[in-house]
Computed example of a mutant assay.
Amino acid sequence: MEMLCTLRSATEGQREALLKAPEHLEDFLDDEEDFGDTEGARFLELDIGETWHGLQYLLTGSAWEGTPPLDFLVRGGEDVGHIPPDEGTARIFTSAQVKQLSVALQALSPDTLKRRFNAGQMQQLDIYPGLWDEPPDDADPLAELLSYFEELGKFVGQVARRGHALLVHIG
């Protein structure tokens, strides 16, 4: 089973509604019409696919640990719940946390990420999807991660400027 990561903006009202009624998480993720939004702001969404774990490693130097806010792909925020049947979990971050994350991502340079990239160590640590030291012939894993890092920075910046919360769903 693939483990993909989607990030989605949420108004503070949506964040509060999800925390009170996590059984609506699946509806929120599937809704194209801004689930429960009374503030009139269109949601933003970014699919980073299977790169989430590689990005976690480059952002923090760790597979499952790290220092907030840069460890946000695998830790932190408030747990919203599980999507049945075994389709993943989601965590949500407040608008204040998103602003801190945006600042931290902007302060991190692509050169720092390049220096952290170590295909052998990533393979040894079982960083998902596990094809770091022998990628397909036409793939450049570092280039792909750097491209998603750039998109991630832009996306989180947009969410922060809107004053929205951020939902991270891996499943």
Rank of each mutant, 00 (worst) to 15 (best):
109 S>H: 10
161 R>S: 15
53 H>L: 09
94 T>W: 05
68 P>I: 07
135 P>T: 08
100 Q>R: 15
120 G>W: 00
96 A>N: 11
83 I>H: 02
63 A>F: 10
29 L>C: 14
101 L>R: 00
105 L>R: 00
5 C>G: 09
58 L>E: 06
130 G>T: 05
108 L>F: 07
21 A>Q: 15
115 R>L: 07
98 V>E: 00
92 I>T: 04
158 Q>I: 04
138 D>M: 03
4 L>W: 11
112 T>M: 06
30 D>L: 14
85 P>Q: 08
73 L>G: 09
77 G>R: 01
50 E>I: 13
144 E>I: 03
1 M>A: 15
88 G>W: 04
4 L>A: 14
4 L>K: 12
150 E>N: 12
133 D>G: 07
127 I>N: 05
118 N>S: 12
54 G>P: 03
25 L>K: 06
50 E>D: 13
37 D>P: 00
53 H>A: 15
153 G>D: 04
154 K>A: 07
18 L>Y: 06
121 Q>M: 12
47 D>Y: 09
48 I>Y: 05
156 V>T: 06
135 P>H: 06
50 E>K: 08
107 A>W: 00
29 L>I: 12
44 L>E: 12
26 E>S: 11
149 F>W: 00
33 E>N: 09
22 P>F: 06
45 E>Q: 15
150 E>M: 07
37 D>K: 05
22 P>M: 07
87 E>Q: 12
64 W>F: 14
142 L>T: 02
52 W>T: 09
148 Y>M: 14
106 Q>M: 03
30 D>R: 13
155 F>P: 03
143 A>L: 01
135 P>S: 11
30 D>T: 06
154 K>C: 01
87 E>W: 09
27 D>L: 10
57 Y>S: 10
66 G>D: 13
